[in-house]
Nucleic acid binder design. Sequence first.
DNA 1: CTATAATGCGAGCATTCACTCGCTTTTCCT
DNA 2: AGGAAAAGCGAGTGAATGCTCGCATTATAG
Lengths: 206, 206
Amino acid sequence: MARKPPTKPRKNASQERSRATVDALIEATARILVKEGFEKASTNRIADVAGVSVGSLYQYFPSKEALVAAVIDRHNDAIMNVVRAAFAGVADLPIEKAVRRLVTVAIEAHHIDPNLHRVLAEQIPRSGHLAEVEAYSHEIHALVRAYLERHRKEMRKIDPALAAFMCVSTIEAVAHNTVLNGEMMSEKMVKVLVDETTRMVVGYLR
Amino acid sequence: MARKPPTKPRKNASQERSRATVDALIEATARILVKEGFEKASTNRIADVAGVSVGSLYQYFPSKEALVAAVIDRHNDAIMNVVRAAFAGVADLPIEKAVRRLVTVAIEAHHIDPNLHRVLAEQIPRSGHLAEVEAYSHEIHALVRAYLERHRKEMRKIDPALAAFMCVSTIEAVAHNTVLNGEMMSEKMVKVLVDETTRMVVGYLR
DNA sequence: CTATAATGCGAGCATTCACTCGCTTTTCCT
DNA sequence: AGGAAAAGCGAGTGAATGCTCGCATTATAG
């Protein structure tokens, strides 16, 4: 079981190799989704693009759905990391500043790999993942709610859960529509949208 | 070409029959989508449920996609009729009243055949229909914009197109999220949401 | 009534696709 | 070195599915 490294602590090569395979598969899936769409993303094609065999694919992913789910998870994780960091950095800011920052981050986060984001939003038949996706959704609501409760004094009297729902819906909607129109969105336009959304949400909260 | 009716002006039976077939097909498609999901909606199955043969199906719809598109169109038409009527009845109302009414209608409209709505939103890979769907989207934006321009005096100074974008995004987001949580939405809750959304939008406009 | 067109039929074709299995190659460990 | 375990391979399988095509049935016109 335990062993001494001869000269250098050699990494477990076999684990490395398989990790690389898994990564290649997820990466290939994402690339095909973006460049050719969901319909063209067959398991054979994915394995082909990843440079591995279908057999290997099925050693790590029990089904095609699992692969797509992995892509979704990876993307959501990337987004959530940005979002979590933003909330951490915003906890003590007053409402106006905090909202402006969060709106900005929301739009930025939606623009991580925007093409993939669009495909996931438009082409993937959502089913089953509900658990995963709803977990993220709940986390965001919880974060907003926590912030709002912490800053109660700056706001009118309102149920924090309800306020969180309204804020999240609004901000997500704007961010979402911004990605979908991605190409024709100038920097200026984004700034304006941030301003407007901030105004809307802040005005609502107090 | 022209012919005299023997006793009663008989409707062109053959046209009637084919219309019935088309209707049955669309109806069957919608039912399968709702009850079994997009994946189970094969052309054979649709024809089967509609009580016609696959051959007949392909006489009226060039592809499976066309059938689904027909279902979507039908549903969007139903929604748009309600929405158009609402705008007509609201044109002369002041902002507060108008927004409240429009928010209510938006939520109601999203609840026309809510199960179908959910399936269309969650399971249908959107592609190509962009033209159709965007037409509706544009119409709504135009309607909102027209209303806002008509009531400029009640608002702060703001670009009507931008304001329309913000209002539509917000209202649609709330309505959308309301359908998705459809089951656990009490009447009371809906009322509260209407109030909150109205407050948010009205507060934003002035 | 008969000819012609419209509508409907459904077995079957061609294709695609998710997935399996028996085998080979690579890596690890002593 | 040598054997075992891990990783990889890819032709093949069976099932599903979109769609066609030759024929049957029904309606219309003269």
